[in-house]
């Protein structure tokens, strides 16, 4: 009897632990729907999805890099690089849209490759490497745009298409985002190629012994991160019909949102754990917090406070779980009970 009960309680906490981001998402969504004025209508929900889609692209890369046990601080600069390149190539160099987007993605991938090579061949901690490349990339972006922004100069065609609601709640840009999330989710969960990322992050040595080229895997993760960040920036710029070189240099930056969402989604910075889909839901959760608080008419200070509180609660929850597990590790409850009974 007792045994069953124990298992049950373990089951619930296990369930909560594993799906906490979905529970958090559902709770916040329900609260917002119930209380926030002007929140629950198609127009606003679409706007949340549109707002989230930029961060989601950063979070995809951040998740994969973190699963490998690394960190990528350069995603925000690479996002800006993708944005200014796609508009700059189109407006200043007269490329077609397709070529502009492809070159922007390639540039992001190149930055990722550089990150990956410095981390794996130069053996420098990814925090430092990407901090350096973040500075370099942001310098390059400013240099390319001369410190100003670039626009498509009245060419709204593709931008309007991106922002068109094709199926209810989903604009084209959001659809592309969701497809990207599903693709990477499937790759990570269902393919050998994807599972290997978890092995690299979980235990590098074991992964090596299992025949995985760990260095190549880490470099691949950075390339994915770079190209996704550039694609996200490019799509945002297209739907905005202009590109800004300095997004995120002030205030809460997309970088911080991406890191926070990845962690809230349950990806561990130590590596080997997490998933793209959970990060996606986490970004939506953060967006709902921001949006609902704006609906309530609260100031920015409440938004930043709430964002920090959610992040802190998640980190603390995770830490406490490990702390408790650590504490009872190796304790054999049956033996203790036998001693108590006597």
């Amino acid at each position: 009897m007792r045994k069953v009960k124990e298992k049950g309680s373990k089951g619930i906490s296990y369930f909560v632990d594993k799906y906490r981001i979905f529970i958090l998402f559902a709770i916040l969504l329900i609260i917002s729907i119930a209380f926030a004025p002007n929140f629950f209508n198609a127009f606003n929900l679409t706007s949340i999805m549109k707002g989230a889609s930029l961060y989601i692209f950063l979070a995809i890369g951040m998740t994969i890099v973190m699963i490998c046990g690394q960190l990528d601080l350069s995603v925000q600069s690479v996002m800006n690089l993708g944005a200014v390149l796609v508009i700059g190539l189109r407006t200043w160099s007269g490329f077609g849209w397709i070529w502009s987007i492809l070159i922007a993605i390639a540039a992001g991938a190149a930055m990722g490759l550089i990150n990956g090579l410095i981390v794996t061949k130069g053996k420098i901690h990814s925090f430092i490497t990407t901090l350096g490349t973040m500075t370099i990339t942001s310098g390059l972006v400013f240099l390319y745009t001369h410190g100003g922004s670039i626009s498509t100069e009245g060419d709204f065609a593709l931008g309007d298409l991106m922002d068109q609601t094709l199926i209810p709640l989903f604009t084209l840009r959001v659809i592309i985002t969701v497809v990207a999330v599903l693709v990477f989710s499937l790759i990570l969960n269902r393919t050998r190629f994807g599972r290997a990322f978890y092995m690299v992050g979980g235990n590098k040595d074991t992964a090596w012994l299992a025949g995985i080229n760990t260095n190549r895997k880490i470099t691949t993760a950075f390339i994915i991160s770079g190209s996704m960040a550039a694609l996200g920036g490019a799509l945002f710029a297209i739907s905005q019909n202009s590109a800004v070189p300095n997004m995120g240099t002030k205030g809460i930056s997309p970088l911080m949102v991406a890191i926070a969402a990845t962690i809230i989604g349950g990806t561990s910075m130590a590596g080997g754990k997490g998933g793209v889909f959970k990060s996606f839901v986490a970004v939506l959760t953060i967006m709902i917090i921001f949006n609902a608080l704006t609906c309530f008419g609260t100031g920015y200070e409440v938004q930043v406070f709430a964002n920090g509180l959610v992040l802190a609660a998640v980190v603390l929850y995770e830490a406490l779980a490990i702390y408790r597990a650590d504490k009872i590790k190796g304790i054999r409850t049956e033996l203790l009970k036998e001693v108590q009974n006597k």
């Binding site: 002007n38 209508n41 127009f43 606003n44 706007s47 549109k50 997004m247 002030k250 949006n291 930043v304």
Partner: peptide, 23 residues
């Protein structure tokens, strides 16, 4: 009057433009 602040984030400002229209 109602005042909204996106704290220097263009993506958030875009959303607030939508929210303002929605109101």
């Amino acid at each position: 009057i109602q005042i909204m602040s996106p704290n220097w984030d263009l993506n958030v400002q875009n959303q607030q433009v939508d929210q303002a229209i929605n109101a």
